[in-house]
Design a binder for these strands. Structure first.
Length: 602
DNA sequence: TTACAACCTTTA
DNA sequence: CAACTAAAGGTGGTAA
């Protein structure tokens, strides 16, 4: 079965450089039910780079290669400079791109953004061959590049060496051939992917992703406005704090000449950023640690002042290096905003991942988040699902106590606190509730007693013995017997050797090797959270289009909009309605709560 | 010199 | 038998 991939045949093509040719060759394209699209561009940034070619492939017709700069020159419009005047070429192309045909592209977000910036619109039904491949292979390590997808599904080897060739000058026949093939090949990939999606019962999830694609494309172009002077102020303070923390460390003799001259490796300066050196120094000082990570050090902070100093320094070093120094590099010179890259299927669970900058890991302190601001006369609307993962667990397990608590609008953490401590709800203290939070979040994915003890201490500041951790664990599963049964069901599948998991919406995660039980417990929850948030984003499109609000950020269970001040009330209602509707579809009868806040910043 | 895995910390 | 998940990214250390 191991054929070596063949070289594909190059399709016929027509190059379009003027309006009369465009008018004549575009006509047959309107009859097509499917249109495959690809663009060659001068770079990867839709805000500054430009389209060089648009390739359009439909069945049984030469690939139409549109030399967009040449056409625009004919029409005397500026490309990608905000010049949005209508003209004959834009009218023709928009009519085609917004018709009822299915638009096929590989990483359609890229084409969408570049067309948008060129003053063109593309709308209607999409089929993204990259997203389709990723939906099929979620959890499996495999490249979703066009080259790899073509090799895997068609056993053809594309030659991508021309992808990064010079697309500025007059194009060679080889370049045009290459460009034509990239569009034409999509027509061959499409039916195979549809068949596979149907067979795997993944068509609906793929369509959710396709509907989501333009929303994400627009969100990235929108970006977030960033108050760089405020950020620098914050950065300066953190930098000063960091230097102070370093001084503390030095006074406690971690950094600088060590007094332990018997150990030659410690006579040199210890670099506090090196876990290796720090560990050696700690051990030489007689501190009993095997590692220098938080969970091992936190229990010792009171005993050893130097550990407190190190953790303080680490925190500030992390914040300054990862955020204060690097975030301003991502401010786009053209917009003054940060435009991260969202990957719709960047996480195995179906969640988004986000890079450059990683907006999903910005520290939660008000100081940091307040640097992400609304434009003048706008406000930031932030909406997040309340305890969505626990509600999903309540829905999936059908656990009676959990469902009753949510139905009554009770505080589930307090309930858990009462159940594991044996107190009445009214007697539960703040500390008890913190303990319960650690228990709820940890145990639903199968955390053991030993980890629970450590986790409760490092993340929630609650100390307990291993025995009490064991007892809490037992009491949790006794109290929530529905959760216990749900875990047992998944464990049975796990023991049978099942190597895939589905969310309620049908999203699949696969494992190439043996899954871990916790991964199988996690996917139905985290994956459904992703399904719900994506559905909410899709539901928002139409009602939001009637307002001037724009989507600027999503973080797993949170949606952030930038909204004109005079539309806050209206848009809040829309946001609330769409998010609740998306979640209710899957969580009913477990109630859904969406919290919305309004402010000048994130 | 560069490429990569290990370690650590940040988020939901 | 017990097992918390999903990411991005900076830094130091080492292998090529």
């Amino acid at each position: 079965m191991n054929y070596s991939p063949k070289t594909p045949e190059y399709p016929a093509y027509t190059v379009v450089k003027d309006i009369p040719t465009l008018k004549s060759v575009i006509k047959p394209l309107f009859k097509a039910k499917v249109i495959a699209l690809d663009c060659e561009t001068t770079g990867l940034d839709p805000l500054t780079d430009k389209i060089r070619l648009i390739q359009i492939a439909v069945p049984n017709y030469p690939v139409v290669i549109i030399d967009l700069p040449a056409i625009y020159k004919h029409n005397n419009v500026e490309h990608n400079t905000g010049d949005r005047r209508t003209n004959i070429s834009r009218l023709l192309l928009n009519k085609l791109f917004c018709n009822s045909a299915l638009k096929i592209a590989h990483n359609a977000k890229f084409e969408w953004q570049f067309l948008n910036q060129a003053g063109l619109q593309i709308a209607g039904r999409f089929f993204d061959t990259q997203l389709a491949y990723q939906v099929l292979n979620a959890g499996i390590k495999t490249s979703a590049s066009l080259e790899n997808v073509t090799r895997k599904l068609l056993r053809l080897q594309l030659d991508k060496t021309l992808q990064t060739s010079n697309w500025h000058q007059n194009l060679t026949p080889e370049q045009l051939q290459y460009a034509a093939l990239d569009a034409a090949i999509l027509l061959d990939l499409y039916p195979i992917l549809v068949k596979k999606l149907k067979q795997a019962n993944l068509l609906k999830i793929a369509q959710l992703e396709f509907y989501c694609m333009p929303v994400v494309a627009k969100m990235e172009l929108n970006g977030m406005l960033f108050d760089v002077s405020q950020w620098h102020k914050l950065g300066a303070k953190l930098e000063a704090d960091k230097i102070n923390a370093l001084q503390q460390l030095k006074q406690l003799r971690l950094v600088g000449k060590s007094q332990l001259s018997l150990l030659p490796e410690l006579t040199d300066t210890v670099n506090p950023n090196s876990s290796q050196q720090v560990l050696a120094a700690f051990q030489a000082m007689g501190i009993p640690v095997q590692s220098t990570n938080q969970k091992d050090l936190v229990p010792l902070v009171n005993q050893y002042p130097i550990i407190k100093a190190l953790l303080d320094y680490r925190h500030l070093a992390k914040i300054t290096a990862t955020f204060t120094d690097s975030l301003p590099k991502h401010i786009h010179p053209k917009t003054g905003r940060v435009h991260p890259n969202y990957y719709q299927l960047g996480a195995r669970s179906g969640r988004f991942s986000c890079r450059q900058p990683p907006l999903q890991t910005i520290p939660r302190d008000a100081a940091a988040r307040s640097c992400f601001i609304a434009a003048p006369n706008y406000q930031i609307l932030k909406a997040d699902y309340s305890q969505i993962e626990l509600r999903i667990v309540a829905r999936l397990s059908g656990d009676a106590k959990m469902r009753k608590a949510y139905r009554q609008g009770a505080d589930l953490h307090k309930l858990t606190a009462a159940l594991v401590t044996g107190k009445r709800i009214t007697e539960v203290t703040e500390e008890d509730r913190r303990l319960a939070k650690a228990i709820n979040f940890g145990l639903i994915y199968g955390m053991g007693a030993a980890k629970l003890r450590v986790y409760a201490e490092t993340k929630y500041g609650v100390t307990m013995t291993l025995e009490s951790a064991k007892a809490f664990r037992t009491r949790f599963f006794d109290a929530y017997s529905g959760v216990t049964k749900w875990h047992e069901t998944i464990k049975k599948a796990y023991l049978r050797g099942v190597k895939e998991s589905r969310t309620l919406a049908g999203r699949r995660r696969r494992w190439a090797d043996k899954p871990r039980l916790a991964e199988m417990l996690n996917h139905p929850v985290q994956g459904l959270n992703a399904d719900i948030n994506k559905l909410a984003m899709v539901k928002l499109v139409k009602p939001l289009s009637r307002t001037n609000a724009r989507l600027i950020c999503v973080v797993h269970d949170e949606i952030v909009l930038e909204c004109p001040e005079n539309e806050i009330a209206q848009v809040s209602r829309i946001l609330h309605r769409c998010m609740v509707a998306a979640a209710v579809k899957f969580l009913n009868p477990v109630p859904v709560v969406v919290d919305i806040t309004v402010g000048d910043s994130w």
